[in-house]
Design a protein around this nucleic acid. Structure first.
Lengths: 158, 158
DNA sequence: GGAAGATGGTTTCAGATGAAACTAATGTCA
DNA sequence: TGACATTAGTTTCATCTGAAACCATCTTCC
């Protein structure tokens, strides 16, 4: 009589399911981005932010994506090395280093976006309609909640 | 006229939202497990599997959790060092190394489960009822789909 | 029986990661 | 003005990670 002292079903534990799904999806996207465009996920995120906002500093990227600043810094260095971004001198506060996409960067963005959208669609194709939207709001709420509960983006006020 | 050549809203991109939420949640749980029990997430997962299945080999854990075998191996080593698991000699096939929780291991499991459940509840408290269950099935489907689409658990048939 | 191959697990190695230290430029306020 | 605290961003360091190499033990099949 193997006592199941505490019946606990890992499979039904949401933080676990979340992590498993997220890791698989991340891996999938990381591979595609790397194969097709030679980009890491962090780099792609920076490009996406710059594409949306036109111009952004490293901290702005950090605030929007939740990546820690070391990661952003490295991604930016990588993009710069490949000439995909340019620096927009900020007269006034010389600590700031506003970035923008270069022409080559914009071309890459234009090439990736349709691919990313296609992958996303393919991923959710099988799910009942509305699931995507529901997940989106739920995930946003969960992220907020986790932050409140102390999952500080590892970075904190220095 | 700053041309938004490709309007793309990263915030609404689900793989991104998934990753952000998952990372925050993982970080939150990792901290709690570490603080309160001195366990890594990988170790906790091994414990959970052993708790549920009674006995399991490293590959069984790998199959159930999707962790790669190196990770499982390290987690097992850690647990063993702390006397939380024991080896169940398998006469027959000496490559196999079935594991089970030791008494101390079971005590830890009994202590963690309520904490894990409480954290999970706290995390989803604010969400509309039913969300948790919906997310669970959706995440499972997404994970399956990602696997099919080529997010192989990094490990493959060696 | 025994070569060739599969399988379970551990270890090595190179690259990624986050936390903390550090540099540089501003702000604050006495 | 000039200490002292803040903020932006980079770099260092110790750790973690996954892929591949590796070892040991079975299986297959001639």
């Amino acid at each position: 009589m193997k006592l199941m002292s505490t019946a606990f079903d890992l499979d039904a534990f949401l933080p676990y399911r979340l992590s498993v799904a997220s890791n698989l999806v991340s891996r999938l996207f990381a591979r595609r981005y790397a194969e097709e465009f030679g980009l890491t996920i962090a780099e792609w995120r920076v490009i996406a932010v710059l594409g949306a906002d036109g111009t952004a500093t490293a901290s702005a990227v950090r605030a929007r994506t939740g990546m820690d600043k070391a990661k952003v810094s490295r991604a930016v260095a990588g993009l710069e090395a490949r000439g995909l971004i340019r620096h927009v001198a900020h007269r006034g506060d010389r600590r700031l280093d506003p970035l923008a996409l270069s022409a080559a960067g914009r071309r890459i963005l234009d090439a990736i976006v349709p691919r990313a959208r296609a992958l996303e669609t393919e991923l959710f194709a099988a799910l009942p309609p509305g699931t995507r939207e529901a997940m989106e709001t739920a995930l946003r709420a969960i992220a907020d909640r986790a932050t409140v509960m102390g999952a500080g983006p590892g970075d904190g006020p220095d």
